[in-house]
């Protein structure tokens, strides 16, 4: 992960099924990925899965937890209310428009010109867009660096 970040300015999203334990989310976060995409295809999310999703949204930067929405508008609304970006399982411009126009979507959008995973089309980026993306990327990297602590280093830095 460090090598990728050293050579490329890219957002890294880990694709995974919804894990059973919260510590797996922390583990993913400690890898240094910027976001998570839960590709689990289910008709509905169980209570335990909703807890895991909520836990992930609290740990990762706003707008960087994605989940499969099965092209179901109810599920889309549920995911948005959980602050998770819904990802349709099949490309549907109408659904994308529906998601982006949802009243709560603006609060959880990752604040980019095109939302990753949701919008497949590549946008044309101006210099200002690129600077904004670079700043967002470095802010996320800094947040991750500040929050992920090595026990040995913490012990050492305490002066003990």
């Amino acid at each position: 992960m460090d090598t990728i970040k050293k050579y490329y300015d890219i957002f890294i999203v880990l694709k995974s099924a919804i894990p059973q334990h919260k510590y797996r989310i922390e583990e993913y976060f400690s890898y240094g990925v910027h976001g998570l995409y839960f590709s689990t295809s289910a008709d509905a999310y169980s209570r335990e899965q909703v807890e895991i999703l909520t836990f992930a949204t609290e740990l990762f930067t706003r707008g960087w937890v994605f989940a499969n929405a099965q092209n179901d508008k109810n599920m889309i609304s549920q995911l948005i209310s959980l602050k998770v970006i819904p990802v349709p399982s099949e490309q549907d411009s109408g659904l994308v428009k529906f998601i982006k126009s949802h009243q709560s979507f603006a609060n959880i959008s990752p604040n980019l010109k095109s939302v990753p995973l949701l919008e497949q089309e590549q946008s044309d980026y101006s210099l200002a867009d690129k600077i904004k993306m670079k700043m967002l990327l470095e802010t996320m990297n800094l947040r991750q660096k500040l929050m992920v602590k090595n026990i040995d280093e913490s012990f050492g830095s305490s002066g003990l």
């Binding site: 510590y23 922390e26 583990e27 976060f29 400690s30 740990l59 500040l146 929050m147 992920v148 602590k149 090595n150 026990i151 040995d152």
Partner: peptide, 10 residues
């Protein structure tokens, strides 16, 4: 998660 890493939530 690796044993020597933890998430600081302050």
């Amino acid at each position: 998660m690796k044993n020597d890493v933890y998430i600081d939530r302050r």
